[in-house]
């Protein structure tokens, strides 16, 4: 009851002032120099990256195609106009489509209509940012060099097979998902470089760690380690 009376009191106090605000600007904050901005002491922004893993080994890779997706936030601390350090926290999803041939042993020798292994990880990266030119309050053109370390919290194995019998009671495909497979290492690390502009950057990263647990029944061949991707800055 008391709340209702209070509401009515507030309502009538406000309602008695007749106006529609068409424009309002608070200038107060203008008078202090900001430390936040793309070329200020501190800046953070979100980004999304998409790309592909490329096999650099002389031996044929066990995967046919791959895709990598990243979504994260970067925190940049400016040291001088030409140099900054940064922290990058991101979520990473990577999926490899497994090649189906007689040499296949990952994760077993069974052949499927479709088969892929995917990994999801949370990574933290430290990077050095080198800027090239004097500029205003913007990111400018930069080269990032850094290293990442991540917690690979989920490795999934997926298979899809065509069913032999296409009669009632049978489905067309059988899909099997093995979640949190045990032959995947929980941590991964590597180096990366980025060549970036205001909103886009080219990403190259190299994973040093092995994806699979050593001597797990068999020694699994490694999936491609080199990633090429395109990154888009999302928000200021």
């Amino acid at each position: 009851m008391k709340k209702n009376i209070l509401f009515l009191l507030i309502f009538f106090t406000v309602a008695s002032f007749g106006q529609r605000t068409l424009l309002t600007q608070n200038v107060d904050s203008n008078y202090s120099k900001s430390k936040y901005g793309p070329n200020r002491f501190f800046y953070s922004y979100q980004y999304m990256a998409i790309g592909q893993y490329v096999n650099t080994d002389t031996v044929k890779a066990p995967s046919k195609q791959s895709i990598g997706f990243k979504y994260g936030t970067k925190f940049k601390f400016k040291i001088c106009n030409y140099y900054a350090i940064g922290l990058d926290i991101n979520y990473d999803y990577t999926s490899y489509r497994i090649r189906q041939d007689s040499t296949k042993i990952l994760p077993d020798s069974n052949l499927h209509f479709r088969e892929r292994i995917s990994f999801q990880s949370i990574n933290a990266a430290l990077f050095n940012r080198f800027n090239f030119k004097k500029r205003g309050d913007r990111l400018g053109t930069y080269l990032d060099l850094g290293a990442y370390y991540g917690w690979l919290y989920r490795g999934n194995h997926f298979t899809k097979d065509k069913n032999q019998y296409n009669s009632p009671g049978y489905s067309k495909y059988t899909i099997v998902r093995n979640k949190k497979v045990s032959y995947v290492n929980n941590y991964n690390y590597g180096f990366f470089a980025r060549l970036g502009g205001e909103y886009l950057s080219l990403n190259v990263s190299y994973r040093f760690s092995d994806l699979f647990v050593k001597n797990y029944i068999v020694n699994y061949p490694e999936l491609p380690r080199l990633f090429f991707g395109l990154e888009i800055r999302l928000a200021q």
Binding site: Q19, R20, T24
Partner: peptide, 18 residues
């Protein structure tokens, strides 16, 4: 002497602002 805030209102009633 510096502005800290400014407004533009469409006036529909006597009392405009407190």
């Amino acid at each position: 002497g510096k502005l800290v805030e400014y407004f533009v209102w469409e006036v529909t009633e006597k009392k405009v602002k407190r």
